[in-house]
Computed example of a mutant assay.
Amino acid sequence: MKKIAIASLLAAAASSQVQADTIGIYAGAYAWQPSVSDSTEVGDLGFDFDADDNATSYYIALEHPIPIIPNARIQRTDVTADNKYSVGELDLSHTDATLYYEVLDNWVHLDLGLTARVFDGQIKNGISNVAIDDTVPMVYGNVMIELPLDFYAGVYGNATNLNDYQVYDFTARVGWEAILGLGIEAGYRTFNAQIDGLSKNASVDTTFKGPFAGLSYHF
């Protein structure tokens, strides 16, 4: 029995190693419908915004078998909110460039790394524009569990509390992957940004949150 148990453990370890020692490409795109909670200010002017229903996000990640070199992931999110009462817009669109390592890679997947979030948005108030264009370092984490019948579930996200940026951004998702790698994905994303120190005494304290649905691909 002891020999059988040891053989089983060795086989499981070998299977896990084979799975880890492959090149994988992960990609996806989804439509996001967030509501917005906002207290954006420019000088002494406050603004109330409605979320844009056309928020979108798409990503691609590359994983490889070289242990010392991190894996890479890029995600783009376009998200804006229109002012309720006058001409104006809050744009918190950004690109995430992430380097991460696979800590676990079997039926439970755990990735940890660092993200550079590049904001390229702005605040428009009908009179002047305030740029939101900093690059912010963030901690990245991703947990995913493989489920029966090619389903999976997990949570991934980024967070930082640095200088004038306090940001957290978490996505809970479930998905199903077909034999050829094409799948569907749905979930809920919460993106909170507290930003101070902008020009013209502007500040942002906003939460975008809501469901999303889209397509995924794994090769």
Rank of each mutant, 00 (worst) to 15 (best):
Y156I: 01
G157C: 12
G157H: 09
G157T: 07
G157N: 03
G157K: 00
G157I: 01
G157A: 12
G157D: 05
G157M: 11
G157W: 08
N158K: 05
N158I: 03
N158F: 00
A159S: 13
A159E: 08
A159P: 02
A159W: 08
T160I: 03
N161R: 08
N161G: 09
L162V: 14
L162S: 13
L162C: 10
L162Y: 15
L162F: 13
L162I: 14
L162R: 07
L162M: 11
L162H: 14
N163G: 12
N163Q: 12
N163F: 13
N163L: 15
N163H: 14
D164E: 15
Y165N: 03
Y165H: 06
Y165A: 09
Y165G: 04
Y165W: 11
Y165E: 05
Q166F: 01
Q166H: 06
Q166V: 04
Q166T: 04
Q166C: 03
V167D: 03
V167Q: 06
V167C: 04
V167T: 07
Y168Q: 07
Y168P: 06
Y168K: 06
D169W: 03
D169T: 07
D169K: 09
D169G: 04
F170V: 14
F170W: 14
F170K: 06
F170Y: 15
F170L: 13
T171D: 10
T171I: 07
T171S: 09
A172G: 13
A172K: 07
A172T: 06
R173T: 11
R173Y: 13
V174S: 02
V174E: 03
V174M: 06
G175R: 01
G175M: 06
G175H: 05
G175L: 03
G175S: 14
E177G: 00
E177H: 08
A178C: 09
A178H: 10
A178E: 08
A178S: 15
A178Q: 10
I179V: 15
I179L: 14
I179P: 00
I179M: 13
I179H: 12
L180T: 08
L180C: 12
L180S: 11
L180Q: 07
G181P: 02
G181L: 12
G181K: 08
G181S: 11
L182N: 10
L182Y: 10
L182K: 14
G183A: 04
G183Q: 02
G183F: 04
G183Y: 03
I184D: 02
I184E: 00
I184A: 12
E185A: 06
E185S: 11
E185D: 13
E185G: 05
E185K: 05
E185M: 08
